[in-house]
Nucleic acid binder design. Structure first.
Length: 575
RNA sequence: CGGGGCGUGGCGCAGCCUGGUAGCGCGCACGCUUGGGGUGCGUGAGGUCGCCGGUUCAAAUCCGGCCGCCCCGACCA
């Protein structure tokens, strides 16, 4: 393509509403423009990148045995009512009515539609397994869209759903998809890590996320420095230690109350009593979705993982209770709550088990207990792994490993769903004995538009974007320095034609702009290879071939340019 | 939803406190100039100052309401 005929509205100034680097660069380099919060236009270059990613995704999905189809973006409420998600999904589901006042929504994901499709078209075990996928726009009315393409409300996603007769076969497909995903992200040139994940609103019991490692990532993940274990912190298990053995002869100090006027938080009381936060038992009162208040205990230097708490309590939601509710239920102001003599149900993290010499609120204002011996002074209704994993924690899988923490951008997720949707929606098949059975399901998503942002987060410098070759909008930029000079223009036009003929994806900067402008735009836009055609070089019979990534420039004889470039591309695609 | 910030030509901003002619840089158009990292000079076009209402002789500026956008939190495949 010709630059002069392509809409690439580059900007000199950083847009005021962009925060992360990918958002800034994609806007500045003329790839995207915001139309409303979390909703963007994709300019021609952005669409090229998206198409490149989609192509890789399609090739690997097809190779893995999946088939592509296309489901509608809007769907009637009835299907969502069947699965229960019309209520469950809440405000994130964008709803509207048609002219007949019938309820509809824009699909945030497509389990309902695909399950409906399969139940109406698959009858026999002979037709299974099957894996169906689509690449399509999704809409989620996110509470807080942000960071450009990283968390949009409208975004492009590849979603696949597989259907099986047995759990084993479904697990086999899960692994098949896991491997396909590794190939996809590798081919796209991303540095990523698969991690164990929570299943969230989709449901199911086994899941991995594919996280692109980047500082700006919204997800915190931990990984073992010795073994393969890696998990989203939401999910990361914490290995509990059994309480230290008791020395019978040891004289334990008695439980005692101390005045802690006005000191409410762990850091405040710790400072006041000159004790480490790890001597504290933090008591947090949560409200469950059924309205119950429960107290959750965790060691003072740790944080409660609300997901673990929710899972343990078997409820959909837990929120920190507000102060008024806490005081109404316990008669104590927050900050001085403690498990000893508390009227609420108490659950405790393993870190609290067997604590001695501990400090916690005494359930009376401005007072804390000190020298608590957990086993002597109180017994929670249950101990469980309830805290957030942190860097330095022992690995839950291997003997000697320690966890490290990273930030990641979730670009893909695979789920084992089981029969959650098939049972609710009556998606069944007849087995060899003629009995009706619910279909086992898995689902597998990739955030295509988010991958664009993730790729830029991982591949940029002070001058702009540096696309991995596999997903770059063009492989080569041909840049004649002065388009008014016939010699340079002709050489540029010829190379452009020759490269196209050789199957290279090439953009020709045929604008009558000064060299500096073209160079700046070239760096910003991030095409991996640049051929600079200047008078000095051309007189000596060569072009300059420059790598956007490392800035290295080599002189290539005019006659060999196409060969050198095609070789370089072939080599990069392979490697 | 809670907290904070912002809304003035296409983009980035000043002006607002202390009411009276709407300004700067970039970009854009034209001319000359320059021609290997955003060239220089000149001329020019382009703005209901987010919207509605109020105060006032007079509102970008003061007051009220609403809308939009950004950040933090809650939320989230």
């Amino acid at each position: 393509m010709r630059w002069s005929k392509t809409l690439i509205p580059t900007l000199k100034e950083v847009p005021a509403d962009a925060e992360v680097i990918s958002h800034k660069l994609l806007v500045r380099a003329g790839y995207i423009r915001q139309i409303s919060r979390g909703i963007y236009d994709y300019f021609p270059l952005a669409l090229k990148v998206i198409r490149k990613i989609e192509t890789i995704v399609r090739q690997e999905m097809d190779r893995a045995g999946a088939q592509e189809l296309l489901l509608p973006i809007s769907s009637p409420a009835e299907l969502w009512q069947e699965s229960g998600r019309w209520e469950y999904y809440g405000k994130e589901l964008l709803r509207f009515k048609d002219r007949h006042e019938r309820d509809f929504c824009l699909g945030p994901t497509h389990e309902e539609l695909i399950t409906d499709l399969v139940r109406r078209s698959v009858r026999s075990y002979r037709e299974l397994p099957i894996n169906l996928y689509q690449v399509q726009t999704k809409f989620r009315d996110e509470v807080r869209p942000r960071f450009g393409l990283m968390r949009g409300r409208e975004f492009i996603m590849k979603d696949a759903y597989s259907f099986h007769t047995t759990v084993e076969d479904c697990r086999r497909e899960y692994d098949n998809m896991y491997q396909a995903y590794k190939r996809i992200f590798t081919r796209c040139g991303l540095s990523f890590r698969p991690v164990e994940a929570d299943t969230g609103a989709i449901g199911g019991s086994l899941s991995h996320e594919f996280q692109v490692l980047a500082e700006s990532g919204e997800d915190a993940i931990v990984s073992c420095d010795q073994c393969e274990y890696a998990a989203n912190v939401e999910k990361a298990e914490v290995k509990g230690k059994p309480p230290a053995a008791r020395d019978i002869s040891e004289e334990l100090p008695k439980l005692e109350k101390v005045a802690t006027p006005g000191k409410k938080t762990v850091p405040e009381v710790a400072e006041f009593l000159k004790l480490g936060a790890n001597k504290f038992i933090k008591t947090l009162v949560y409200k469950t979705d059924s309205g119950d208040l429960i107290a959750a205990l965790v060691r003072g230097d740790h944080e409660i993982n609300e997901l673990k708490l929710r899972t343990m309590l078997g409820c959909r939601e837990v929120t920190l209770a507000d102060e008024a509710a806490v005081t109404a239920a316990t008669g104590v102001v927050t900050g001085y709550i403690g498990p000893i003599g508390l009227s609420l149900r108490v659950v405790a993290d393993l870190s609290v088990h067997g604590m001695r010499g501990a400090v916690t609120g005494a359930n009376e204002a401005n007072t804390h207990y000190v020298d608590i011996d957990q086993e002597r002074d109180f017994t929670p209704s249950a101990f469980a792994d309830l805290r957030l994993a942190v860097a330095g924690d022992p690995c839950p899988r291997c003997e000697s490993g320690k966890l490290q923490s990273h930030r990641g951008i979730e670009v893909g997720q695979v789920f084992y769903l089981g029969t959650k949707y098939s049972e609710k929606m009556g998606a069944t098949y007849l087995d060899a004995e003629g009995r009706e059975q619910p279909i086992e399901m898995g689902c597998y998503g990739i955030g295509i538009s988010r991958m664009v942002a993730a790729a830029v987060e991982q591949n940029n410098d002070a001058n702009g974007i540096i696309w991995p070759l596999a997903i770059a909008p063009f492989q080569v930029l041909v840049l004649p320095i002065n388009y008014k000079e016939d010699k340079l223009r002709d050489a540029g036009e010829k190379l452009y034609r020759d490269l196209q003929r050789a199957g290279v994806e090439v953009l020709l900067d045929d604008r009558d702009e000064r060299a500096g402008v073209k160079f700046k735009d070239a760096d910003l836009v991030g095409i991996p290879l640049r051929v600079t055609i200047g008078a000095k070089g051309l007189d000596k019979g060569f072009f300059e071939l420059r790598s956007r990534r490392d800035g290295k420039t080599e002189e290539v004889p005019v006659g060999e340019a196409v060969k050198v470039i095609t070789e370089k591309i072939a080599q990069a695609v392979q490697g």
